[in-house]
């Protein structure tokens, strides 16, 4: 079933895009991530211009994280106080990221920067997550006690001033690292065109020691707000958001996310981390291969506009 996309200006197979949306949605629901780092490369692969892909994926992530956030909200798995402190940093970070994006584009090496950051970030986070999941599995197999939250082992983070009580997460923590994390994720998200949950969640769990029960829901709120802002910015500045493409992705994505979330609850946490680590690592390696292996065509063409005088 072919459909012509009004902004991307190419016909696409609706069923293919629906299936891609559902597949990425399934993964995102399962791991509680946005899935932008999977969706954007997939869209580029089927022939949609990178700029249109990045811009349209933002609204797709907004949809799937909103649906996720709603169900986490009903289960009281979102910490509103933590979410608002994260957002304070996130909004500023997004604005800074958009500014950096423009600067990099002016320098003419935006594509390379994006590829390199994908490689570095994804391989680093992926291998850490994979390694951690593997260690946890081995520990369980040996029957050792799981000691993720060692009481009394406070790091320097817990000595910072401006402490605040986050009731629902049952922690007492300084707002400084929380705002800094929001800032970082907002920045990375705007430059790389991703939601950033796959980095945010490990940081919140392992560094800030926020209980797993509220982490996923709260990170979805941050993703939701930054992606809504990103959609607006892309629509206003570049006019590249393809609403038809976004709608197809959303329908596939939110449906897939529901099934993914159910599947995710059936899988043990260690397995889940191991799988997600592998997936992130695979995407990172794919980007690395693309940079290192001689491309089949050394030349590329890009439309730079220029209306006839």
């Amino acid at each position: 079933m072919q459909l012509y996309l009004p902004i991307a200006d190419i016909p696409i197979n609706v069923l293919l895009i629906l299936a891609m949306g559902a597949a990425v949605g399934f993964v995102s629901g399962m791991f509680g991530i946005g899935g932008g780092f999977l969706m954007t490369p997939l869209l580029i692969f089927v022939g949609i211009a990178p700029a249109v892909s990045v811009a349209s994926v933002a609204s797709h992530i907004a949809a799937s994280s909103f649906s996720g956030a709603l169900s986490y909200w009903r289960r009281r798995a979102i910490d509103p106080a933590l979410a608002s402190v994260l957002l304070t940093g996130g909004v500023v970070g997004t604005a800074l990221g958009v500014w950096a994006f423009t600067q990099l584009r002016n320098l003419g090496q935006l594509d390379l920067t994006i590829s390199l950051s994908y490689v570095i970030l994804l391989t680093a986070v992926g291998s850490l997550m994979f390694w951690e999941g593997l260690r946890a599995l081995l520990r369980i197999r040996r029957g050792d006690p799981v000691n993720l939250r060692r009481s009394g082992s406070h790091s320097w983070v817990h000595g910072l001033p401006l402490k605040m009580r986050f009731k629902r997460s049952k922690i007492y923590l300084s707002v400084i690292p929380v705002i800094a994390v929001g800032l970082l994720i907002g920045f990375i998200g705007a430059v790389m065109g991703i939601g950033g949950s796959f980095i945010l969640i490990p940081i919140l769990i392992y560094w800030l020691r926020i209980p797993t029960s509220t982490v996923i829901g709260t990170s979805m709120v941050l993703t939701l707000v930054t992606m809504v802002i990103a959609t607006l910015l892309h629509a206003v500045t570049n006019h590249l958001v393809d609403a038809v493409l976004a709608l197809i992705l959303m329908v596939g994505g939110v449906t897939g996310a529901q099934f993914g979330a159910r599947a995710g609850q059936k899988i043990r946490g260690e397995h889940l981390r191991l799988l997600l680590g592998l997936l992130i690592l695979a995407v990172g390696v794919r980007f690395a291969v693309e940079l290192v292996v001689r491309p089949t065509d050394l030349f590329t063409i890009r439309d730079t506009g220029g209306v006839a005088p």
């Binding site: 949809a63 809504v228 976004a246």
Partner: peptide, 19 residues
């Protein structure tokens, strides 16, 4: 701007509908 707002609203609507 309006287009962006509508797209964002559409995203929220479909997310809400799915939930």
């Amino acid at each position: 701007f309006i287009y962006g707002l509508l797209t964002a609203a559409m995203a929220l609507m479909s997310g809400w509908a799915a939930s």
